[in-house]
Design a protein around this nucleic acid. Sequence first.
DNA 1: CGACTCATTGAGACCGCTCAAGAAACGTGG
DNA 2: CCACGTTTCTTGAGCGGTCTCAATGAGTCG
Lengths: 229, 229
Amino acid sequence: MEESRCENCIVRQFNALRAMTKEELKAVSDSKETRTIRKGESLFEEGDKLGGVMCVRNGVSKLSKLSANGKDQIVKLATKGQVMGQRSVVAEEATNLSAVAVSDMEVCFIPKDSINSALHKNPDFTLEVLRHMAHDLREADDVIVNMSQKTVKQRMAEAFLYLQRFGVDEDGYFNLRLSREDISNVVGTATESAIRIISEFKKKGLIIASGKRLGVKDEKKLRDLAEGF
Amino acid sequence: MEESRCENCIVRQFNALRAMTKEELKAVSDSKETRTIRKGESLFEEGDKLGGVMCVRNGVSKLSKLSANGKDQIVKLATKGQVMGQRSVVAEEATNLSAVAVSDMEVCFIPKDSINSALHKNPDFTLEVLRHMAHDLREADDVIVNMSQKTVKQRMAEAFLYLQRFGVDEDGYFNLRLSREDISNVVGTATESAIRIISEFKKKGLIIASGKRLGVKDEKKLRDLAEGF
DNA sequence: CGACTCATTGAGACCGCTCAAGAAACGTGG
DNA sequence: CCACGTTTCTTGAGCGGTCTCAATGAGTCG
């Protein structure tokens, strides 16, 4: 039971909860609820009013938004230590994104009351949350520019570099197995286009691919491609 | 001199400064510096380390980011009451955006020290800043989806609806006069494409246009078009 | 009135999307 | 373990949207 207390949770180092006081952390730990989510299951849907935030202990979730033409755009992937739904809780609005597990997950649901009381009383914590959100906002700005100014091929190269951040096995394959459709939803393109580019990259020796197993082979060339050289 | 004090400044109602205490506001007011910026002049450049934030008193500034292919992408327009550079100050990083005036402006430069001390001591203020940033982040997510999933025509329709928010004159023309190039940088397209779509919209009676003067004519149809009908 | 910048229009090439069909991988129940 | 349906992946062909280049017209300011 010890390791199920937030006070002892390692992932806390990666998020804003580390700025909480012992007492606040205790309150969070007492009210939280650990959940196991199977791959493919939904954590919440766009438009839901969230009663709290989700802290990822293990696994990866895609955060996506449905567009008018019926396609999902994956805005970001949340992994160990990241907190989902904080935007919604802070702004007291419904979520603008849906969250679906892309691998089996373990998440802690933290009711918003314990978050809110800390937000009102502990400026260090609030500031830490603010810093994380500032970081997210910067990344979002970068994505906007990429989406509007780069070709699908460049964005695909970036996507591979992005996926690499979630870890690779001894052969260099990504730990995270995304379907071609999910990849195309990260890149913002048609699935067929994504597939064609993947096989092109493979032929050119930029990446390794065998079935669903994908990985980066020539990081430097991918980076150059993403920058437009 | 009275109206140059932040305590009496009306635009404060629109931003996070309204959550400051009287004392904090006094400190801000004593350290701030009012600047007049001519249309076309730059407020700061991508990569600059900002010594503080800019609060817009009057006029409009474009916040843009240069992409590798040499084109600016306008991420947002900041107008009366909006604070620029807070992301950079909060995260203690260089700015990720450049700011250039698109009309004559009056802005107040507020050194970061007075902001930072309030951020550490006044949770109400910090929370208010956080809420604003949460709102910005939501808008950024929406833009990402629009950029990746909508056609240039749809985005152009959205751009017109967006520009309308900055006010119109008695004839329905936008108060804000953007060049075709700036418009295309909002939409994220080539200038020629933007021009062609503008004349198409005019022909169809969706907008009014005479030279640089632009305006919305049929808001409903524009909205439908933006949504993909 | 010249030297700008900005707006407009045309034509051609290319990129990326869609539709359609087949191959491979996966899961499930017999 | 196999047969089956279902999903996912792959490839081809064609169309349409968007970009680029280039030339012309219009507006602005000394």
